[in-house]
C-alpha cells in the first residue's frame, strides 16, 4: 500500500511541477469552448440549450490530449520496467497512474467547467449538477483512457490512434453526463442519470486497470 501511495504522489507531483501539463489541458478546454459560439453564432438561447453537450465534448477532448502522458514517458525512460518488477502488481500500478491522471486532469477540468458554463449562458440551477456529474464521470475518462494509452504506448502516431480507440468507449459517459445536466429532461430525471454515470465510472475503474495491465505485460516482455 505504501508503494501505491508513493507512486500516486510521485505522478501527481510530476504533473504539477512539470508545468504545462495541467495548464495545457485547461487552456485547450477554454479555447474549444470559446470557439463554439464563434462557429454556432452568439444566440444565447441556443448556447444555453447546447451548453451541457459542448462542455462535455470539450472536456473529453481536453482529457484525451493528456492521456498518452499516463504511460509513455515512464516507458521511454525505463521507469515502467522497474515498476513492473517492483512489489506492486501492474494492475495497481495502472490504478495509481490512472488515479493520478484523474486528479491532475479530471478534477481541474471539472472545476473549470462551471466557469466556462458562464460563457455558454448555462442555466444557473444546473451548476451544482454540472460539477457533480463531471466529477462522477471523469474517472471513467481516465480509467478507460488508460486502456487506450497502454495499447498505443509503443506506436508512433499514438495520439490519433488513441482518439480513434478511446472515443467510442466514451459514448456512455458522454450520454449520461449530458442527460443528467440537461435539466432533468430524461425519462427518470437527474438522479437516475447521475447514478448510472457513477456506475459507468465504477465499471471503468474495474475494467480499465485489468485491460491496461494486460496490455502493458504484452509489451514489457
Amino acid at each position: 500500500m505504501k508503494s501505491f501511495w508513493a507512486l500516486l504522489s510521485r505522478d501527481v507531483i510530476l504533473a504539477v511541477r512539470e508545468g504545462g501539463a495541467i495548464g495545457t489541458a485547461l487552456g485547450f478546454f477554454l479555447v474549444v469552448v470559446s470557439l463554439m459560439p464563434l462557429g454556432l453564432g452568439p444566440d444565447l438561447n441556443l448556447l444555453s440549450r447546447i451548453a451541457a453537450g459542448v462542455l462535455w465534448i470539450a472536456l473529453l477532448l481536453a482529457a484525451l490530449l493528456s492521456l498518452n502522458r499516463i504511460f509513455e514517458a515512464d516507458h521511454e525512460d525505463g521507469t515502467l520496467d522497474v515498476l513492473a518488477t517492483g512489489p506492486l502488481p501492474l494492475e495497481l500500478v495502472t490504478v495509481a497512474k490512472s488515479l493520478a491522471h484523474w486528479i491532475t486532469t479530471g478534477i481541474p477540468l471539472a472545476i473549470m467547467a462551471p466557469v466556462l458554463g458562464i460563457l455558454l449562458n448555462l442555466d444557473l440551477a444546473a451548476y451544482p449538477i454540472l460539477v457533480a456529474t463531471t466529477l462522477a464521470g471523469t474517472p471513467a475518462v481516465s480509467f478507460l483512457g488508460a486502456i487506450g494509452a497502454a495499447l498505443t504506448m509503443k506506436t508512433r502516431r499514438g495520439g490519433l490512434l488513441l482518439a480513434l480507440i478511446v472515443l467510442p468507449l466514451y459514448v456512455p459517459t458522454l450520454i449520461f453526463g449530458i442527460s443528467a445536466v440537461s435539466a432533468g429532461a430524461g425519462p427518470a430525471g437527474v438522479g437516475a442519470s447521475f447514478l448510472i454515470l457513477a456506475a459507468i465510472s465504477l465499471v471503468a475503474i474495474v475494467l480499465g486497470p485489468l485491460a491496461a495491465a494486460a496490455a502493458l505485460r504484452v509489451q514489457l516482455q
Partner: peptide, 28 residues
C-alpha cells in the same frame, strides 16, 4: 495480436453499455 485481442474483449464488454446508453439517449 495480443493487444488487438485485449481491445476486442474490452469492446465486447462495453458494447452492451453503449447499446443501453444509446437506447436511453434516443428516448430523450
Amino acid at each position: 495480436a495480443k493487444l488487438t485481442a485485449i481491445l476486442a474483449l474490452v469492446g465486447v464488454t462495453i458494447l452492451p453499455i453503449i447499446k443501453f446508453s444509446v437506447d436511453w439517449w434516443n428516448t430523450l
